[in-house]
Design a protein around this nucleic acid. Structure first.
Length: 823
DNA sequence: GCTTAGGGTTCG
């Protein structure tokens, strides 16, 4: 490839990139509508190229493309319907005069814009995914009687630059650089109408909250069909009937309450009410309807138009829907709550699938919870199972067999083990049902549940794969991780593993181990006269209030207990992880490298050097650090109360904290000022304790001379106050998964964690003994080597609450008025 | 080529 050609292509691609950036549109190079190629695509990679003369409006050109050289390129025109339109003409090379070998091409939408920027007159292009229409200008321009219309997802234009002669001669390379669009474009603006204002026969763009939906399914015709009912602030409920040849072009609705944006839908009267039907150029975006959820749209198209105003519309619809309690009946439940005869939506992970017969497929799924009812066991020949064929006994208890019938068998074909699914309108069927094709040696149980997805699409029956970024999937993964870990720990063969021992540093004092062998229990300290309820009863209680339960601790997280420690800001109420030691070391080291060490000292300080012995450094010969002392404290003989260190490591700060009451790592600023290191790391070392400040609430914190009036002791409180630092407090946060015969319940241990363990978070942060007590307690409640029967039954008092931000009516529970007692 | 389906529980 010649140099000027490379240059030209580079400038072309750069231009595409920057232009896109300005439009703030989503692009994926894989589906970029205009693709610049160095070679013509090989025959296998694109539809058949047919001669332009063979184009006819009566033919199906769905699999055809045409090739031609661009002989005319019109201006890019802004259009209210399609955002942009551009007309061009392509002509076949070596064309015969008697053939109609030049044809008008009309590009719409982003394709037009891309074409305008990327393609020049003289370029050879291959167009595919076009519609064929009658050319209204055929008489005048003497070109082909048809024109090619390119818009939407399928439309594609390849620009072929396969030989140097396609490129401009060297001298013209600069001139041929794509110029800005020849028309001044206004920002395209879509207008949306409220559902009450729809008029029959007209095409609209609308927003709506989904009240009901059916997954797209193959119609008897050529398209996938999906149906939904939406509403908006105008209180009108409107049904939508959508036909798209591609499954992905349908709105990707995961649950009722999702919000859809539909472009180019036509209002039609059907059965005395208006229905919306998609028309040419239809596109859909879908948003999570949950308040405060991400406003990232779900779309199969990479080139949708999405503005801040859209974001606002979504937010408004969300809060409106929340205030109207529109989607109160959430049919999604966990296996733990499945009851006989229930219809429900199951969000789960597929572990294995197996064809039973032509009308039935078995899906083996789990959602991390255990169904309280005995489940149907299905015996299937291992070699027809796709996915994991056998599970441990513990794992098997968590797996549900879902039998999928008739039309849904087809939609299981593309499912892969590991996929996260939502199965809509599953039915829990009690008792034993004979199924065709199943061997007779299946275990019959008197009271078992089986799960069926019946044929048909009533009530939105169907299966959908949920993408990884879906919040429900993330939640599921998290639960599964915990359950998975807890199952692994319960496996005897894993019990001795290095991992397990690594998590549990052996208790420091052997005496404590003996004490621990006696065990622990919990007791409630509240005066509530409440009768304990079962976990499943508790879940159906009205929100709020206190509840007593008797349950076993099935698992907890974090399993690595040091991660239960958090830093809490009492001012902004934020909670953060304690920074990892490697991160702390890096911040210290960056600060040392950035400091020259030669700056002047603040006027209030006495500066000097301190020598540290070599054993602190690996193989080092000792280090000399820059130190600053408060002149006033020194004059009062209180030299050992406070020292500022610059260029030190965290270990060195710790080491000096044995000699000096307060050690503050600093870095010199230009001039004679000192500054704190990044507030990610401790700003103060006192004895074995490290103190952190809130980044958010400590803006404007400065190192200044500490005031130590009279004999006032300098501690973390008054040091933080003097410097303007908002001190963070250690807290503990654990999640317990409590279980009784009726189900599993996730509860938090936060506010009263210190009372619960009878250990302060500060102690847990620094003292081995405190850490041991927590570890021993949890090991007793949830024995790593133990089976369910070994877990003691524990009494809890729980406070139930709903957070304001949450609109999916998820209840949360926190352990309160409960403490552990040594037996 | 211009339909397909147009919500309201099941064969198993």
């Amino acid at each position: 490839m010649s140099l000027h050609m490379r240059k030209h292509l580079r400038s072309l691609l750069v231009c595409l990139k920057t232009k896109r950036g300005k439009q703030a549109l989503k692009f994926d190079t894989a589906t970029m509508p205009v693709i610049v190629l160095l070679k013509k695509p090989s025959a296998g990679n694109q539809p058949d190229i047919i001669p332009i003369s063979q184009i006819s409006s009566g033919k199906n050109h769905g699999h055809h493309s045409v090739e031609g050289r661009v002989v005319h390129k019109g201006p890019l025109v802004s259009s209210s319907n399609y955002h942009f339109i551009l007309k061009g003409v392509i002509e076949e090379d070596n064309s015969k005069p008697e053939e109609k070998s030049s044809i008008n091409i009309i590009m719409m939408g982003m394709l037009a814009k891309e074409f305008s920027q990327a393609v020049n007159i003289g370029d050879l292009v291959v167009a595919s995914g076009f519609m064929v229409g009658k050319s209204p200008t055929a008489r005048q321009d003497k070109r082909h009687v048809c024109n090619l219309m390119l818009s939407g997802d399928k439309a594609l234009i390849h620009v072929c630059r396969h030989s140097p002669c396609d490129l401009p001669p060297p001298g013209q390379a600069e001139m041929k650089k794509p110029s800005p669009p020849p028309v001044v474009l206004t920002t395209p603006k879509y207008t949306y109408v409220k559902l009450r204002d729809l008029k029959a026969g007209q095409v609209f763009n609308v927003y709506g909250v989904v009240l009901f939906f059916k997954q797209p399914f193959k119609s008897r015709g050529t398209d996938f069909f999906s149906s939904l009912k939406i509403t908006d602030q105008s209180e009108q409920k409107i049904r939508c009937t959508l036909f798209c040849s591609r499954m992905e072009s349908h709105p990707q609705i995961f649950q009722s309450g999702d919000i859809v944006r539909l472009h180019r839908v036509k209002a039609q009267s059907f059965n005395d009410s208006l229905t919306l039907i998609n028309t040419f150029g239809f596109s859909a975006l879908t948003f999570d309807g949950t308040m405060d959820a991400d406003t990232e749209p779900r779309s199969s198209s990479k080139t949708f138009h999405f503005t801040e105003e859209d974001r606002r519309t979504v937010t408004e619809l969300r809060s409106w829907a929340a205030s109207r309690n529109l989607v109160s009946q959430d049919l999604s439940i966990r296996l733990a709550n499945a009851q006989p005869k229930m219809y429900f939506n199951l969000t789960c992970q597929l572990l294995a699938k197996a064809p039973i017969d032509a009308t039935c497929t078995l899906l083996r799924v789990w959602d991390g919870t255990q169904c309280p009812h005995a489940l149907l066991k299905v015996t299937v020949d291992a070699n027809i199972i796709e996915g994991i064929t056998s599970f441990s006994e513990e794992r098997e208890k968590l797996i549900a067999n879902v039998l999928v019938f008739d039309n849904h068998v087809q939609s299981t074909e593309h499912l892969k083990p590991g996929d996260f699914l939502r199965i809509f309108n599953v039915r829990a069927i009690p008792g034993s049902i004979k199924r065709p094709g199943l061997s007779s040696n299946q275990v019959e149980q008197s009271h078992h549940l089986s799960f069926h997805l019946h044929g048909g699409t009533t009530y939105g029956r169907g299966i959908r794969i949920l993408p990884d970024n879906c919040p429900d999937v993330q939640e599921l993964r998290r639960i599964m991780d915990v359950v998975h870990e807890s199952i692994e720990i319960n496996q005897p063969e894993v019990n001795d593993s290095v991992l397990w021992h690594a998590w549990n540093t052996p208790p420091q004092s052997p005496n404590k181990v003996n004490e621990a062998s006696v065990g622990f229990t919990t007791e409630r300290t509240c005066g509530h006269g409440l009768q304990p309820v079962s976990v499943s009863e508790l879940k159906v209680c009205k929100p709020g209030g206190y509840h007593h339960v008797k349950a076993q601790l099935r698992s907890y997280e974090p399993l690595r207990l040091h991660r239960a420690l958090k830093l809490f800001c009492s001012k902004c109420k934020s909670m953060q992880d304690v920074p990892d030691n490697r991160l702390v070391t890096k911040v210290f080291s960056d600060a040392s490298n950035g400091a020259s060490g030669l700056s002047n000292s603040p006027p209030w300080s006495l500066s000097g050097k301190v020598h540290l012995p070599g054993y602190l450094q690996a193989g080092g010969e000792g280090r000399t650090l820059n130190v600053h002392l408060s002149a006033q404290l020194v004059s009062e003989g209180r030299t050992k109360e406070l020292i500022f260190l610059s260029g030190c490591t965290p270990d060195e700060a710790c080491h000096l904290a044995a000699t000096y009451a307060n050690v503050i790592p600093v870095r010199p600023l230009p001039g004679d000022q000192l500054d704190f290191l990044d507030l990610t790391v401790p700003f103060l070392f006192r004895g074995s304790k490290r103190f952190y400040g809130c980044k958010q609430c400590s803006k404007g914190a400065v190192v200044r001379e500490p005031k130590a009036d009279g004999d006032k002791v300098l501690d973390e409180q008054n040091i933080a106050e003097v410097f303007g630092i908002q001190l963070l407090k250690f807290v503990m946060l654990l999640t317990f998964y409590l279980q009784d015969a009726s189900g599993m319940l996730k509860v938090f241990l936060l506010r009263e964690a210190e009372d619960f363990f009878n250990v302060s978070a500060d102690e847990a942060a620094t003292q081995q003994e405190a850490q041991d007590r927590i570890t021993r307690t949890l090991n007793y409640f949830c024995p790593p080597e133990g089976r369910t029967s070994k877990r003691p039954w524990l009494d809890f008092c729980l406070a139930a609450y709903r957070t304001n931000a949450d609109n999916n009516h998820q209840d949360y529970y926190q352990i309160t008025n409960t403490r552990t007692r040594e037996l």
